[in-house]
Computed example of a mutant assay.
Amino acid sequence: MARPADAAKRAELLRQTFDYLVEHGLADLSLRPLAAALGTSSRMLVHYFGTKEQLVTQALAAVRPDIEALMDSAGEGAESLTALARMVWQDMCGGEQEPRVRLLLEVMGLAMTQPDQYGALAADAIHAWVKPVAHALRRAGLSTAQAQARATALVSGLRGIAHDRYLTGDRARTDAAAEQIIALVVPRRPGSSAGPATGHEDSPHRDPT
């Protein structure tokens, strides 16, 4: 009977695997050189994690932030959601989330040409963000359909703009684009399904109802 996997060793291997993937990428990943870099054997990696794809999936999941807790911390108001979205954007560009987003973008690219290997992993990573963001938007007063659509726009929009930022290094333009996405997605006030305010809506002569 195979001995139970040591939890601490397993967690350390996942962390090291993630660091390796950030440095070397996924396209040419092979268990043998990965195992050598981690100071173990490909046989042990298979023992702990199964296939290469299962190892990659578990490595990405192990470093994924607790997105639901992050969204829950936003509170109920639109101002809190806006501040949280801005914080996430900054973290994607130079913060702790940047290497994770870069790796996710590579996974998504590979999923287009190798769906059997990476399709489920890419889809799971997308839903892991969209679902809690949609939940937070529902708490802000949007319907389920509105919340899901806006969560998709925010998550996919910020990720796409981050991709632009990584490739071009254009800080001012991508920051402005991210701010525009956030303003369009987050409700102006609790219970509002409208987008960002227009000049007419801000007029003191209009009935606010």
Rank of each mutant, 00 (worst) to 15 (best):
A2M: 09
A2E: 05
A7H: 07
A8Y: 01
E12K: 00
L13K: 01
L14T: 02
R15L: 02
F18T: 13
F18A: 08
Y20P: 02
Y20N: 02
L21A: 07
L21T: 05
H24C: 01
H24F: 05
G25V: 11
G25S: 09
L26E: 13
L26T: 11
A27Q: 11
L31W: 05
L31Y: 03
R32G: 10
P33D: 02
L34P: 03
A35H: 01
A37W: 09
A37V: 04
G39P: 09
S42F: 06
S42A: 14
V46R: 15
V46G: 06
F49W: 01
F49M: 03
K52G: 03
T57F: 01
L60M: 11
R64L: 13
P65A: 10
P65C: 12
A69V: 08
M71V: 15
A74Q: 00
G75D: 01
A78T: 09
E79R: 12
L81H: 07
A83C: 12
A83L: 13
L84Y: 03
A85C: 06
R86G: 01
V88S: 03
V88N: 01
D91L: 07
M92K: 00
M92R: 00
G95R: 10
E96F: 09
E98M: 07
R102Q: 12
L103N: 03
L103C: 05
L104Q: 05
E106Q: 14
L110S: 05
M112C: 10
Y118M: 06
L121K: 02
W129L: 13
V130Y: 13
P132F: 00
L137V: 06
R138M: 15
R138G: 06
G141L: 08
G141H: 03
S143C: 05
S143F: 10
S143T: 15
A145Y: 12
A145I: 12
Q148M: 14
R150Q: 00
A153F: 07
S156L: 13
A162W: 05
G169D: 06
D170M: 03
D170P: 05
R171H: 13
A172D: 15
D175I: 11
D175M: 10
A177E: 11
A177K: 10
A177L: 15
A177G: 04
E179T: 14
E179D: 14
I181T: 11
I182M: 08
V186T: 06
P187V: 01
P187T: 01
R188M: 10
R189A: 15
R189E: 15
R189P: 07
A194R: 15
G195Y: 01
P196I: 08
A197F: 06
A197E: 14
H200R: 05
H200S: 07
E201M: 11
S203F: 02
P204M: 14
R206H: 00
